[in-house]
């Protein structure tokens, strides 16, 4: 047996086997690293709330227009005063804002919609609405201040 131990001629075969194994492991780690980067970039595409932000602004624009019309009708149409239309509109908008807030709070997002200014025309209906919209989901924050909405009849 002493002969086998003393004979070191063939060690390079075992050594190269080891070298190849180690390099394989290294390559695997590298590839994994690259794959994880890809994972996070794909994940970012899923996480960024682009559709949320769009749907909130689109919905708010549409609702504000309709609320302006509704407020005018409910205040008596042509017999309305700017004050009563504004009061009714503010009530509708705060109601809308509160409901949006509750709905989005359930998925951990904050939505705030407030009225900053309303411009009236001569027939006591609202022509242009200035709103402040803000959205925050913890990582992404979006504000549109002011969001200007033109109400067309």
């Amino acid at each position: 047996m002493a002969g086998i131990i003393d004979d070191t001629d063939g060690q390079w075969i075992a050594l190269s086997g080891l070298t190849i194994s180690i390099s394989l492991v290294l390559v695997a780690i590298l590839v994994n690293e690259a794959a994880i980067t890809g994972y996070y970039s794909s994940y970012a595409a899923l996480e960024f709330p682009k559709e949320k932000i769009r749907e909130i602004t689109a919905q708010t624009q549409e609702s504000a227009k309709n609320a302006a019309q509704l407020a005018w009708n409910y205040s008596g149409g042509l017999h309305a005063t700017n004050e009563s239309v504004l009061n009714n509109f503010t009530a509708l908008l705060s109601n809308y804002s509160a409901q949006m807030n509750t709905i989005y709070a359930v998925h951990g997002e904050t939505v705030n919609i407030t009225l900053s200014k309303a411009v009236f025309n001569s027939s006591h209906s609202i022509d242009i609405i200035w709103l402040n919209i803000s959205y925050d989901d913890g990582t992404t924050r979006y504000t549109s201040e002011p969001e200007i909405i033109e109400v067309k009849q």
């Binding site: 075969i13 190269s16 086997g17 190849i20 394989l24 390559v27 590839v31 690259a34 794959a35 890809g38 994972y39 970039s41 794909s42 595409a45």
Partner: peptide
Amino acid sequence: ISIFLLTFGFVIQFIPSLFISTSAGGSLNP
């Protein structure tokens, strides 16, 4: 040496199929 080379050949052949699906898989999806 032939046992070594045979296995080495097998490993070399195996490497592309091991990595190709993962490394190329995501690169153009974004």
